[in-house]
Nucleic acid binder design. Sequence first.
DNA 1: CTACTCTTTGGCCATGCGGTCAGAATCCAA
DNA 2: TTGGATTCTGACCGCATGGCCAAAGAGTAG
Lengths: 176, 176
Amino acid sequence: MLAENGYSATSLAAIADRLGVSKGVISYHFAGKAEVLNEVVRSVLSEAEAWMSPRVAGAASFTEALRLYIASNLAFLDTHRTEIFALTEVLSNARATPGVAETFSESHQAAIAALEALFTGGRKAGEFGDVAPRASAISLRAAIDAVSGLIREDPAFDLTGFGTDLATLYERASAR
Amino acid sequence: MLAENGYSATSLAAIADRLGVSKGVISYHFAGKAEVLNEVVRSVLSEAEAWMSPRVAGAASFTEALRLYIASNLAFLDTHRTEIFALTEVLSNARATPGVAETFSESHQAAIAALEALFTGGRKAGEFGDVAPRASAISLRAAIDAVSGLIREDPAFDLTGFGTDLATLYERASAR
DNA sequence: CTACTCTTTGGCCATGCGGTCAGAATCCAA
DNA sequence: TTGGATTCTGACCGCATGGCCAAAGAGTAG
């Protein structure tokens, strides 16, 4: 519902209606609307984590890890569009939903830290040049995060092509 | 009000109250709330345009243009935080406000197209290597757009440092 | 001073929201 | 079969929203 009709159209009444159930059921099982939305965020984030972890783990070098990270993240976005749209819809209105901002921020910080570690690791191993790890991590994550908006506007957007271009871009930027 | 208290707290009643004026005044001067919010978007976008244009125009090379583009854009974000926060607040809820999505999308497409032209120009002039113009344009804009969120979370975020790092990153990526 | 237009007021409306609750229905173990 | 616990219903509450409008007020040209 979030993905299809947006945040403001996703009222408790609308949710209950869609479930073919009375509104009170939601109140019975959840403390409130905020808890429902937080659960949406939590579940999508954990899905993403479960998808990416094993795919990046198999990298034999930092360069390969970078490629795998980008490719697997974009693949997740591609194959989980509804979830991603729902997530962004909730995040857009995070101010109206206590807890959501904190949950996501934590996860987002962790993602940036992981990428930063990848860049510093590559530098220490002599695989990368003197790239700025934090700025690279931030900007790469921003580029990936922007993709959800791109595929929303143009569902046919070439994710794979963008992924390889992005990987090449950061590979060159961090080359020795 | 948008920047301080967020979209959902910015009702017509709250706006009128802040102006020390009756609610009907807004209805008298605007067709509806959507028109008010569209005006916010329109005005911030045109402010940004007015700020950036002259600053980028003076570039003597594509490399310099790239640096100036990034630096001036970040300087605008830095010095117009309230406007930027207000803008993002409206954009976050674009689905609830007809017209906003279209206005912004148009401006955003134009910005990406301009950056793409910068990269292709640099290539044709032999200044840049075989960088992917579109992917570079998209990812660079994403990196810059993400800054509004960064300074919201951490007002002391080092924008200048990030700007030079970002410029260096894209310079290296597009080097011959 | 008058007469007309423009602007503002303050109360009103219908609507939809999140949330509550008494009571009905259902489930399930003893 | 029974009886207590769990789950669900549908009506209801208070509240805030965007919008509307008759009437009062302010401004201004002749």
